[in-house]
Design a protein around this nucleic acid. Sequence first.
DNA 1: GATTAGTGGTACTGACTGTTACCGTGATTT
DNA 2: AAATCACGGTAACAGTCAGTACCACTAATC
Lengths: 199, 199
Amino acid sequence: MTAAAEVFFEQGYAATSIDSIIERTGGSKRNIYKEFGSKAGLFIALVSDTADEVLDALSDDGSRGRDLTEQLVGYARQLTTVYMSARLVGLLRVVMAEAIRFPDLAAAFYERGPGRAAARLVEILEEAKERGEIAQGDCQMAADQFCGMLRDNVHLQVVLGLRPALTTAEIEASATAAVRIFLDGIRVDASARPEPNDQ
Amino acid sequence: MTAAAEVFFEQGYAATSIDSIIERTGGSKRNIYKEFGSKAGLFIALVSDTADEVLDALSDDGSRGRDLTEQLVGYARQLTTVYMSARLVGLLRVVMAEAIRFPDLAAAFYERGPGRAAARLVEILEEAKERGEIAQGDCQMAADQFCGMLRDNVHLQVVLGLRPALTTAEIEASATAAVRIFLDGIRVDASARPEPNDQ
DNA sequence: GATTAGTGGTACTGACTGTTACCGTGATTT
DNA sequence: AAATCACGGTAACAGTCAGTACCACTAATC
């Protein structure tokens, strides 16, 4: 149940008691232990399920656009939306916190989530590179850094609970700005400055 | 003592017992409670001290370079070095995990750390904008996203314990690549493609 | 040398928690 | 209708832990 996962996400693994989960979800200890075996098993199952559910939304899309800009904006829009969702914020918090105690969980989370998303982006970039649209260079590193742009300081503030998640309009603005920088940079080349583009 | 902070960073707040801290640091409960009052007080003091210590290294530098590229590379190099340090990785983990329980700590961490670093970067960008070197646009957003590039997927893997921290050489490569993308983008402009630059 | 202050260590208490066992109830099956 | 099963709720057990109190020792002060 997703409600059980919320308790772990809010309070953390160690601070969450089985009783507090039952308070929120109903059911009995008997069946929790029958199905999951232990608190750790319950935690792993809940995190894995949530991760599957949330992260599968990452690997659907991104390539629907016609040209590279549209592809990347679509990709950034979707990735940012997922990163801003309450589910993923909680997941990120708890997986980071318990990465040492549950290394397998951390690895599974990364591979199914950010890793797979970056791999998809690498494909997009490799194709663009073959078409000659982007410069030669390390596509993996560029993809990783682009993903980082989407987990920017604003996202960090959301994860730290310092500000509410971005609205769709804000996500759109952030995604287009990120793609713009990623593709063209912010520098005004002195040799080719046709007009100051302010959009 | 920095050793006490390590215990919190490794195990998390709830999973760390006062006894386990004393095991590592020596001393007695008596004096811990005399000085810090409670476990939460100890935690806040340790995290605050560590944050001050580590994050002050963020706001020193960055503007030593002569031109914008050098400034940004220096900034990125230093920020990435700090972000990759074991101290900051542990700090990040525990602050994220306990952001709900200790919101003041999360706010203080952000403002003294990523917030201040981004503010410094905004200054650099605003100056460059006045000089006409970079395009008109939201410098705050650009700075936030640039900081995100430095907390890229590789950094996430480090935080999740999936790979060791970057070496200085790798940091250098990552920093220069990030600045290159940030300033000029990865696109090869079809109208001005003198030669494919592969470096 | 005696006294006092401060420290490390240990024991204790009360509360909490993971885990197991037990009891009562309602539904399903034969 | 009887019996079996599945489930929720409660209790019990064992271990841990925050926080307090106490004891022994050392060092400094008078």
